[in-house]
Amino acid sequence: MVAQEFTVDLNKPLVFQVGHLGEDYEEWVHQPIVSKEGPRFFESNFWEFLTLTVWWAIPTIWLPVVCWCISMSVRMGQTIPEAVLMVALGIFVWTLMEYTLHRFLFHIKTKSYWGNTLHYLLHGCHHKHPMDGLRLVFPPAATAVLCFPVWNLVKLFSTPTTTPSLFGGGLLGYVMYDVTHYYLHHGQPSREVPKSLKRYHLNHHFRIQNKGFGITSSLWDRVFGTLPQSKAAENKK
């Protein structure tokens, strides 16, 4: 007897449905629904509220923390040029983290009930509903929780004086990433560089979803060989 395939009801809260898709989840989640109206995640209004974040909350909440971290290093004796260098290094390290997390965690393949459910919450929902403007940036409460292990990790590889500015640089890189990500989906760039970046990212969503893992730049895709070919290059084959 063949088991009946599970069908997701888009008119009901999705989070606890998607796990039932099993091996079909990977195909389902990469068939995007292009609508600015996001789906319902949870029956509970409280849990639903925690999944919704306006884009401007990210710089509003985290830029003061970035400034505080940098000023802490300066107060501890770090010179302004040294602080600037540490901030730049932190941003650079973040770009690698951005690529690594997107490629190896956000695009991990799952088929178990809880694996599918957790992946949908983490990143699958974004691929299924890529224009959902209230779920494009990471909820600040979750970021705050992750800041603690990241801070302690930075402490292992740096001195007490450089830890705050290096961490602040990484946090600034994250803010740039989340704001850029929102803009690539909802902005209408007129200049070539942001227009190219928008094409590069939307290509990841709608054409080649197993390549193009950078958001703020294609640097690490070029380094690790995951830069997708252009349509023109594909057509020449």
Rank of each mutant, 00 (worst) to 15 (best):
Met131Phe: 08
Met131Tyr: 07
Met131Thr: 00
Asp132Phe: 13
Leu134Ala: 03
Arg135Asp: 12
Val137Glu: 08
Val137Ile: 12
Phe138Arg: 09
Phe138Trp: 15
Ala141Lys: 04
Ala141Glu: 08
Ala141His: 09
Ala141Phe: 11
Ala142Met: 15
Thr143Pro: 00
Val145Asn: 01
Cys147Asn: 09
Cys147Tyr: 08
Phe148Ala: 07
Phe148Pro: 00
Phe148Trp: 10
Pro149Glu: 15
Trp151Gly: 02
Asn152His: 12
Lys155Asp: 13
Leu156Asp: 09
Pro160Gln: 14
Thr163Pro: 03
Leu166Ala: 02
Gly168Ser: 04
Gly169Cys: 05
Gly170Met: 15
Leu171Gly: 01
Leu171Asn: 00
Tyr174Ser: 12
Val175Arg: 05
Val175Met: 12
Met176Val: 13
Met176Glu: 06
Tyr177Phe: 15
Asp178Leu: 13
Thr180Pro: 00
His181Val: 06
His181Glu: 02
Tyr182Gln: 01
Tyr183Met: 10
Leu184Ser: 01
His185Pro: 02
His186Tyr: 06
Gly187Glu: 08
Gln188Trp: 14
Pro189Leu: 04
Pro189Phe: 07
Glu192Gly: 04
Val193Gly: 03
Pro194Ala: 05
Pro194Glu: 05
Lys195Trp: 07
Ser196Leu: 06
Ser196Glu: 09
Ser196Thr: 03
Leu197Lys: 04
Lys198Glu: 10
Lys198Gly: 04
Arg199Pro: 04
Arg199Ala: 14
Tyr200Leu: 09
Tyr200Glu: 07
Leu202Pro: 07
Asn203Val: 00
His204Pro: 05
Arg207Met: 08
Arg207Asp: 07
Ile208Thr: 09
Ile208Tyr: 08
Gln209Arg: 06
Asn210Val: 11
Asn210Ile: 12
Ile215Val: 15
Ile215Phe: 03
Thr216Gln: 08
Thr216Leu: 01
Ser217Ile: 02
Ser218Cys: 14
Trp220Leu: 11
Asp221Gln: 09
Arg222Leu: 14
Arg222Met: 15
